[in-house]
Amino acid sequence: MMVLLSVGLVLLMAGVLIVTICFSAALSIMPYISGALISLVICTEVPFAKEIVPDHPFMNYCVILIIVEVIIAALMRIKWIGRATALCFNEIMVGIISMFILDAMKPDSIGYCVFITLVYLVGNLVFLTTNSSKYASEEKPVPAGIIISTLMYAIAGYFILAIPTELLWQKYIEQTFPSVVVGFMVVYWALRIVICGGILVKGIIRAKKSLSDDQIGERWDIDGREEASSKSV
């Protein structure tokens, strides 16, 4: 009996370890999977992209894929924007997966929509925080880094808001309360403007403050050098 329990415990621990390794691997490659999908969209939707290697769509895709993946890898390794890049491209992938899942659902009550939305938001929070935290930097970001990060956070915010709203709540409202669809869409667009616009405005304010602080610091350095020079004379 003890032998069976020991074997079962070992198998359980091995299973947990395998799941953990697979989850960590998935977290690491998720931005690059997003890059592969973005490359596919570029190949199919951007006219000039089809002419990189004429009459060879697979080669076209490979060239664009390499370019996109190199850009993603480079952005993720820039200390000021690495976390925002990881979060943005992870959210794109999570959003695409969620689109298929939520599109297949049939919301039949407000409680159903609330429950699925909460699960979606909590899952997003855990997943994105876990995967993007390792790219965080303790160094003070430069203004350009703040602006780029802000744009990526705004894109991620759009996906987080749009997926459950358009594929869950809008579907439920259209089926149950068709007379208020217009009002619902007005509120939804207002939320998009407030959330995404708020992220952008906050980022611009942070960038301006950082730039002002840098200019003040440079001025102090210049004044300090001038004062030291005058004393030495």
Rank of each mutant, 00 (worst) to 15 (best):
V201I: 13
Q170R: 10
T150H: 06
Y120N: 04
L128T: 01
A73Q: 03
I155Y: 14
L168R: 07
G198F: 03
A162F: 13
Y153R: 02
I33D: 15
W220T: 01
P141R: 08
A86V: 09
I96M: 14
W220D: 10
L9H: 13
I222P: 00
P31F: 09
A154W: 13
W220Q: 03
D223S: 07
G157I: 07
P31Q: 04
R219I: 03
M99A: 11
V94Y: 15
D213E: 15
C196R: 12
V187M: 11
S137N: 02
D221H: 02
V10N: 12
G82C: 02
F58Y: 13
G198Y: 00
V126D: 06
Y32V: 10
L5H: 11
I33P: 12
L125N: 04
A14I: 09
F159C: 09
K209P: 05
I66H: 09
K50V: 02
I71Q: 06
I21Y: 06
W220P: 00
F177N: 10
I148M: 13
T130C: 10
L102C: 00
F115E: 02
V126I: 14
Q170T: 10
V187E: 10
I101W: 01
L151I: 09
L4Y: 02
I193E: 09
M1D: 11
Y135L: 07
D221K: 07
A25G: 10
L75W: 06
G197H: 02
R206G: 08
L37S: 05
